[in-house]
């Protein structure tokens, strides 16, 4: 095993070009577990901790440009206004210690269906900017996940930034685990209302081979909200509408039975979370607020 320690982004890209098998390590929260438990022995470790760009976030007009290694704790503390869905998801990640280390880039790199950031990024409509010595490109989040723990990165590419539109409406994230903290998702659901485009987007975690959107549910809801003039009237959503949305969201799942939960439960729970999070976001929209933060506590 070799430890590559680039001092900056250009060096990191050069190292990755020279050693495409090199495994990037930033927060280490996935990779070090695999190394400690002898599940993986990469030929090269590519340490990204020294790459300053990855630790920063900024804004480009209506978007946040989020460095791949900005730790979840900072997303919770600094971005809950601009990216409320992602901040909420970040707050559910593992433990305070992990939130101090891990960032969205690692979640995307591992591309586990259980990654907590994914449903929020899907719902927000993020773009992942990846780069290699050959140049950079932006991959829409919808095209990023290509299989179980597989993503659209080429062997010589690294994740640099994630571009996420600033929220124009309420966003929520909810995840089921069998413990009240420090738990991997049995399944998860993210929702974002986009009043500017009068659309709704969603993301589902741990209920299909990859993180997915509930496309039929989104289409149904977007159409129903337009038809019923809900965006303008701010009326309460009829329970039947929320129920239909929930059912369609559950239908978007293609889950498996595993040690964390049954397929049937996952489908059921995604429906419950879809109904609830729609209720929370819509109530928040009606009240004209960006969504109250609850239980943020000391974070």
């Amino acid at each position: 095993m070799d430890f590559l320690r680039p001092a900056g982004w250009a060096e990191a890209l050069a190292a990755k070009a020279e050693h495409p098998a090199a495994v990037p390590i930033a927060g280490g929260t996935d990779l070090m577990v695999e190394i400690n438990f002898d599940h993986r022995r990469p030929e090269y470790l590519l340490d990204l901790n020294r790459v300053a760009e990855l630790q920063e976030w900024g804004t480009d007009g209506g978007s946040v440009r989020l460095g791949a290694s900005v730790p979840y704790a900072r997303i919770v503390a600094e971005l809950r206004g601009a990216l409320p869905g992602l901040a909420r998801a970040a707050h559910t990640v593992a433990s305070p210690q992990i939130r101090n280390r891990g960032g969205v880039g690692g979640n995307l790199g591992t591309a586990s269906p259980a990654g907590d950031a994914h449903p929020a990024l899907l719902a927000a409509g993020a773009e992942v900017e990846v780069e290699s010595v050959r140049g950079s490109r932006r991959i829409p989040i919808d095209e990023f996940f290509t299989g179980v723990k597989r993503n659209a990165l080429a062997p010589d590419e690294l994740i640099k930034w994630v571009h996420v539109k600033k929220a124009t409406g309420p966003q929520e994230f909810s995840k089921v685990g069998t413990r009240n903290a420090m738990v991997i998702a049995v399944c998860a659901f993210g929702i974002a209302l986009h009043p500017d485009t009068r659309t709704v987007r969603t993301g589902i975690g741990s209920a299909a081979p990859t993180p997915v959107r509930a496309a039929a549910a989104e289409e149904f809801l977007t159409a129903a909200l337009a038809e019923g003039n809900f965006w303008d009237s701010g009326r309460t959503l009829p329970p039947a509408l929320a129920a239909q949305f929930a059912e369609l969201a559950a239908g978007a799942c293609n889950p498996i039975d595993d040690v964390r939960g049954s397929a049937r439960y996952r489908r059921h729970a995604v429906g419950v979370m879809a109904r609830r999070t729609l209720g929370w976001t819509w109530e928040s929209y009606r009240r004209g607020t960006a969504g109250p933060t609850r239980g943020e506590g000391a974070a």
């Binding site: 909810s174 995840k175 089921v176 413990r179 009240n180 998702a185 929370w280 239980g295």
Partner: peptide, 8 residues
């Protein structure tokens, strides 16, 4: 559900 924000 705790921090996972599953019910209010």
């Amino acid at each position: 559900g705790g921090l996972s924000n599953t019910t209010h």
